[in-house]
Design a protein around this nucleic acid. Structure first.
Length: 493
RNA sequence: GGCGUCUUGGCCGAGUGGCUAGGCAAAGGUCUGCAAAACCUUGUACAGCGGUUCGAAUCCGCUAGACGCCUCCA
C-alpha cells in the first residue's frame, strides 16, 4: 500500500481561502505547475524561498509515493516592463545594457538560476519548458480565445476582453477583486492605448521595429503577452485541468487571475484544483529591493560577502532557516536568525549522525510510532515545516537522552527512528548532511583518533596544558571534541 | 485612495475557543581536571480597547502599527 493511502494531506487553497483535503484528479498521480523566474538578472533570495516551498511540496508528494509531474517554466521571452503599450522588454534592456544578445542574457541567468538552486539542494522539476519554445502553443490559445469572442485585435495586437469575460465568468475570483473596483482604481497610464478598457491585458503584442525578440503570427510580427505562456505550457504538459498551481503571492494578481481567465475563455473550465501561494521574504523588516540596498544574493550568503550578514553560512543553514517558517507567512531574513538557525541545524544534524552509535535495549521509553505519525501529521497539515522541525527536535532530545542513558530504545524502534529522521530531514526537507560527508573520510577520522588518544594520555598524565592545546587547536580547524561516558568523540561543521 | 494580510515571551517562529509548540539567547543544577557538548529545572507571551461565550491570545467590532497587491516582480 502506498504511503499516500495512509496519509491525508490538507492544502490551503487560495481560491477557496480554506484548507482542503487533497485529492488528485488521477489517483497516484499529481500534476503541479509553478511559475518560474524571468531570466533577466541573478535569481534573488526571495525567488529561492518560493521555489524552495514548492521543492518541499514536490519532495513530500514524491515521498508519499505519488508520481509527480512537476512543471516549472523559464520565462525567456521579452515581456514589457509595464502594461502600457510602450516600453522596452526587460531581457532586451539587459541585452542592450550589457551589449550582448538577448538569448545570451537568457542563457547566462538560466545557468545562474540552476547553479543557485543546485547549491540549495533542489530537486529538478520534471519538465522545465521555456516561453520561447512554446510560441506556437501560445498562438493557438489566442486563436481559441478569439474564436470564443473574448479577445479582440487592434493594430496587430490582441487583447483579452475582461469586461466581456466578466459577463459570463468571474474575473477576480482568485484575488477576490471585483471588476467595478478595478475600473475605479486603475491608474492612468501614460501614452495612448489600443485597449478598449484599461483592465484588458495583452495576449499578443505587435513588435516595434527595434524590438529584437519577435515571432510571426496571424496578427503581426510580435511577441506573446506576459500571462499567456503559463496557460500554454501548463495546458500542454498537464492538461486543461490539473491538480496544483503554485507561485509567489505577488503573482496572484494579475498573473494568476489572468491565467484562470485565459484558460476559462478557451477551455470553459477552471484549470486548477488547488492554488498555492508562497509568501514574501523580507530582509531586516523591509522589502528586499536592489534600489535601496536592502538586498542579498544567494551566493553572498555562502561567501559571507554582504554587509547585511556577519559571516558565511552553509546553503543547508539558509535552507533550514527558511523552512523554520511556514510558506504562507512573511519571513524576515536577518543575521541573528541565521545564527540561531545554524546552531539549531547543527544540533539536529549531529544527533542524526549519533544514531548509529546508540545502544539498544529490550524496551523503549517512548512511542516511536506515535512520534513518526506526528511528523507526517505536520507535513499533512498544509506542509507545515516548522511543526515538523519541532518534532524532529523532540527526537533530537530522545537521541541525546539515549546517549546519556536516561532513555532506552529497542533495536526495531531505533531503526524506525533512524529511518524517519533521515527521510524527513534529508529527503523531505532537502537538507544536506554536509558534515558527515566531510568527516566520513577514513583518513581524517584516523588522524583525529590519534589526536584523541594523545590527548587521553596527556590527561592521564595530568598534562592539561597539552590536552587543552589539542582540544582548542582542533576547534580552530572546525573539529570539536566531545567527552562522553564512553570516551571522546568528535563532530565537524 | 481601493482590496487584502499580519501584529505572539529577550530574538526568531508555530498553533489552538479550555490541555507544554519548537529553535536561539538567559539563569540554576548534573557531568568534567577545567571546558565544550549533552541532560534536568526555570519564562506563565499572545498590539490596545470593547463585545460574544461558562471560558478567548484563538470568534466579532473599533483603534494603532507593519506589510503586500492595485504597475514588471517569487
Amino acid at each position: 500500500m502506498a504511503l499516500y493511502q495512509q496519509q491525508t494531506i490538507k492544502i490551503y487553497n487560495s481560491l477557496s481561502g480554506k484548507k482542503e483535503e487533497f485529492e488528485p484528479i488521477h489517483e497516484g498521480y499529481v500534476g503541479m505547475y509553478v511559475c518560474g523566474p524571468t531570466v533577466y538578472s541573478n535569481v534573488h533570495l526571495g525567488n529561492v524561498r518560493t521555489f524552495m516551498s514548492f521543492d518541499v511540496v514536490n519532495r513530500y508528494l514524491k515521498h508519499l509515493g505519488y508520481k509527480v509531474r512537476y512543471v516549472r517554466n523559464i520565462t525567456d521571452a521579452g515581456h514589457l516592463e509595464n502594461d502600457a503599450d510602450e516600453g522596452e522588454d526587460r531581457i532586451a534592456k539587459k541585452a542592450r545594457l550589457e551589449a550582448i544578445e538577448p538569448m545570451e542574457v537568457v542563457q547566462r541567468y538560466t545557468v545562474d538560476f540552476h547553479n543557485i538552486l543546485n547549491s540549495f539542494n533542489f530537486l529538478p522539476p520534471s519538465i522545465e519548458p521555456t516561453a520561447t519554445g512554446h510560441i506556437i502553443e501560445q498562438i493557438e490559445i489566442i486563436k481559441c480565445i478569439l474564436d470564443n469572442g473574448l479577445a479582440y485585435e487592434v493594430n496587430g495586437s490582441v487583447y483579452f476582453d475582461v469586461l466581456k469575460y466578466n459577463n459570463k465568468k468571474t474575473y477576480g475570483i482568485l484575488s477576490k477583486r471585483n471588476v467595478e473596483d478595478l475600473i475605479h482604481n486603475t491608474r492612468q497610464l501614460d501614452g495612448q492605448s489600443d485597449k478598449k478598457n484599461p483592465q484588458d491585458f495583452a495576449l499578443w503584442k505587435k513588435a516595434e521595429p527595434q524590438h529584437i525578440m519577435r515571432w510571426p503570427s496571424p496578427w503581426s510580427d510580435g511577441f506573446p503577452g506576459w500571462h499567456l505562456e503559463c496557460t500554454a505550457m501548463s495546458t500542454k504538459y498537464l492538461g486543461e485541468h490539473f491538480d496544483i498551481h503554485g507561485g509567489g503571492m505577488d503573482l496572484k494578481f494579475p498573473h494568476h487571475e489572468c491565467e484562470i481567465a485565459q484558460a476559462e475563455a478557451c477551455n470553459n473550465e477552471s484549470p486548477v484544483n488547488y492554488w498555492m501561494h508562497a509568501n514574501m521574504l523580507i530582509m531586516n523588516g523591509k522589502k528586499m529591493a536592489k534600489s535601496t540596498g536592502n538586498f542579498i544574493l544567494p551566493n553572498e550568503i555562502f561567501t559571507g560577502d554582504n554587509p547585511h550578514i556577519s559571516k558565511a553560512y552553509l546553503p543547508s543553514v539558509a535552507r533550514f532557516f527558511m523552512l523554520q517558517a511556514h510558506y504562507r507567512s512573511i519571513l524576515d531574513f536577518t543575521d541573528d536568525g541565521l545564527q540561531a538557525a545554524e546552531k539549531g541545524f547543527f544540533r539536529l544534524k549531529d544527533a542524526i549522525n549519533d544514531i548509529d552509535d546508540l545502544k539498544t535495549s529490550s524496551a523503549s521509553t517512548f512511542d516511536v510510532n506515535a512520534w513518526r505519525q506526528r511528523c507526517f501529521d505536520a507535513m499533512n497539515d498544509d506542509f507545515n515545516t516548522p511543526i515538523l522541525i519541532a518534532q524532529l527536535f523532540e527526537a533530537v532530545k530522545i537521541i541525546n537522552q539515549i546517549k546519556d542513558g536516561s532513555a532506552t530504545v529497542t533495536a526495531d524502534d531505533l531503526n524506525i527512528l533512524k529511518t524517519t529522521m533521515t527521510e524527513f530531514t534529508f529527503d523531505i526537507l532537502g537538507l544536506s548532511n554536509t558534515a558527515k560527508e566531510s568527516s566520513s573520510s577514513d583518513k581524517l577520522s584516523g588522524v583525529v583518533e590519534i589526536l584523541i588518544n594523545l590527548r587521553k594520555e596527556a590527561r592521564q598524565n595530568k598534562d592539561f596544558a597539552l590536552s587543552d592545546k589539542i582540544r582548542d587547536e582542533l576547534i580552530e580547524v572546525g573539529i570539536q571534541l566531545q567527552d562522553g561516558k564512553d570516551g571522546t568523540s568528535f563532530t565537524t561543521n
